[in-house]
Every structure is written in C-alpha cells, then in structure tokens.
Nucleic acid binder design. Structure first.
Lengths: 190, 190
DNA sequence: TCCACTACTTACACTTTTGTAAGTAGACAC
DNA sequence: GTGTCTACTTACAAAAGTGTAAGTAGTGGA
C-alpha cells in the first residue's frame, strides 16, 4: 500500500486535528482509533504508534482543545496593537461565543476535564484590568467579568437553542447581543 | 436467581434513573447496558427487553434528562402561590445554575441533542412577561432574559471552573452573584 | 550507496459490548 | 388451582474496539 511518511510531530498534529473534526461532526463516538485512522487514510495501529493507546489520543485531544479554546480568543488581545479596546474585547467575545467551541467545551466538561488547565492567567487578568480601570478589583467588577464570561460560554453552548425557543432568527442577533452586553457592563463604551 | 418483578413502566423508569446516576458519577462510559444492569441488579438482556437496543436506552435518557432539566426549574414558578416574584425567580436561577444540571446538559449538547425539545413555552414566556411587565417585549428586555438564561446555564456548566481561575472560593459567591444579576436586570428589585 | 532509524503496514488475538434464543418465574384473571 | 401473560433469567453468538508482533518502506545521514 502506498505510504505517506510524516514526521512524528506532523503525524500527531494531523491525527489530533482529524479527531477534533470527527468529534464535532460525529460526536464522541467518532473519536475511536479505527474511525480516526480511516478518516486519515492510515491503518489504525499507526494511531497507537503515536499515542500508545486509545485513551492516550483522547488525553492529547483534551489538552489540545483546551489550549485552542483559549489561544484562539486571547491571541486577539495580544496581537491588537492598540491594546485592549472595546473593539478587541468584542472580537474576543465573538470567539468565546462561537458555537463551534460549544461542542468541544461540552465534551471536556462531560468527561470531567478542566476547560482551563494550568494556563497563565494573562487573558482573564487583562480583561479584569480593563474592567477595573486600574482602581483595583471590586466584587462588582468581578461579577461583571463573570457575567460576561458565563454568558458568552453559555452562548457558545446553547445560544442557538435559546434563540430558537424565543423565536428569534435574526442572523445579526448574536452580534447585537454581544454589543449590548458590553455596553451594559462598560457604560462609557457607546 | 431471586427475581424482582416490576411493571414495564416501573422498570423503564428505574433503568433510566440508574443510567442518569451513572452518567453523572462515571461519565458517558457509564451508560452501557451491562453497567446499568449491574448497578440495578438485573441481567443485561432485561435492559434490552425494555428498550430494544443500547441506543434505545440512550435515546430515552436524552428525553428524560431534557424534561427533568426543565420541569425541575419551572415547577417552582408554577407552584409558588404568590406567583412570579423576585424570590421565586431567584429560586429558578438557583436550579438553572446547579452544576448537576451542567453535566447532563453537556451530554445532551455534545451528542447533538436539543436541550429544549418540543415543550410548551410556558416557562420562558412567563419569565418574559415578568421582565416586560405587560408592556410588550422589547429587544432590550429579551436581551436581559437571554443574558440571565445564558449566564445561569454557563454557571451550571463551568461556574466552578471560572471561580477557580479567578481565585474565588467563597461558598456563598454563586448565590450573591445570582442576586446581583437579578438586581442588574430588574433594577427595582432591591 | 549503504545504513540506521522509525513511521507505517498487515495479520492476528483479545476484551468489551451488544444482541439473540430459549426458557423460567412472578403476578393477575378466572 | 389453572392458565396466560410477560418481566426476567441463563447461555451463547456476533460485532466492535483495542492492542500486539513482525515485518516493510520512506528519509536522512555517513
């Protein structure tokens, strides 16, 4: 059989990427070494070669997803030359609220994983600083931060479902909702 | 072997209850007919007898969980003789935000299930009425409702994780947060 | 060009999970 | 009591999923 040879690093990355895709498209039962190997076009022992055992792959997938979820959103803050602005915050919220994140997050949670493992607190801390405007953190401001985070994670998980129940099918509603929320918690941001 | 005989209805209810318990305590891999049968003290074909196949059980479990999630919270509104009050709303939020719901919800979502299937809109509609105070529903008020719902579902799913990241370990914090949130969206409720 | 390394293959074995066939026993009707 | 119904049992079979052993084929270095 024609064989494609990757570096170990490439292979591991590709396997995880495909496993993540299967998780999203087929649900948890798509994350099996035989299924992943099939989707990737390799034999299933090739997967075992790189991850040791089936749970090894899942473990690596947990890690990668939790990293992606964070990096994806926070890289915006780090890369915006103007620093933290209302616009960049809004972009962060958009990423946080992305329904694609929802399924991944749900998988982590239902498997008892911490969705925020051992990362630097950079992201939360900087948002916090924005909200507290250098005056030190009050309970009020912390609640605002939690509200925004929980609402956006809630949005990613079941925003579409809630809108369906409320009979809303305006495509721009999620964006409007995010903007409304930012103005609610940062009043001077009109 | 000593045999306990239930009605078909009782058996199905008991099986689902035990399966739900296993889902919470052992995660998705606990929901297998052999495991459920063991926990219930029957042979595994007994499960198949009532649900046809393994997926039949899971399907029934999806249904039951989505019903329970709703009924649990909304029965408070329906049973409170004073009608909808700030206190009863707060009790609803507490139920919505219960971490036990989180795992169940996550399981529904990661398996592509609608967490709010085909139920009467009673619950949401009555909360909506409370927020709109009979004046008809504005976008502002709908956003407030969505904010509360999404934040509380977010809380149920990962409130504890977010608090851990922010270094909060005050046990009464979730309750305080809920009260703060209600005052934020219903200003006259101090 | 040869060699070492290892990403990958095929073939097989094992375990886990699901499903089936046939029969057993508890409850209810008469 | 006798009989019918069906919730449940045991025993077996099939399938799915995982893991192992041994060998093959790319790739990079000498």
């Amino acid at each position: 059989m024609a064989r494609k040879r990757r570096t170990a690093e490439q292979a591991r990355a590709e396997i995880i990427e495909i496993a993540a895709g299967l998780l999203e498209s087929e649900g948890p039962s798509g994350v099996r070494i035989a299924r992943v190997a099939e989707a990737m076009g390799v034999s299933h022992p090739a997967i075992l070669h790189h991850f040791g055992c089936a749970d090894g792959l899942r473990e690596a997938l947990y890690r990668q997803i939790s990293i992606d979820l964070r990096v994806d959103a926070l890289s915006i803050l780090e890369n915006d030359p103007r620093g933290i602005t209302i616009d960049s915050l809004e972009a962060v919220l958009e990423r946080l609220a992305d329904p694609k994140n929802g399924k991944m997050m749900a998988w982590l949670l239902v498997n008892g994983r911490d969705p925020f493992p051992d990362a630097g607190e950079q992201g939360l801390a900087s948002i916090l600083a924005m909200l507290s405007q250098g005056k030190g953190i009050s309970t009020e401001r912390r609640y605002k931060l939690m509200l925004v985070l929980l609402a956006m994670y809630g949005e990613s998980l079941l925003g579409d479902h809630v809108r369906a129940r409320l009979g809303v099918d305006d495509e721009s509603d999620p964006a409007n909702f995010r903007r409304w929320l930012l103005r609610l918690v940062i009043p001077q941001s009109d």
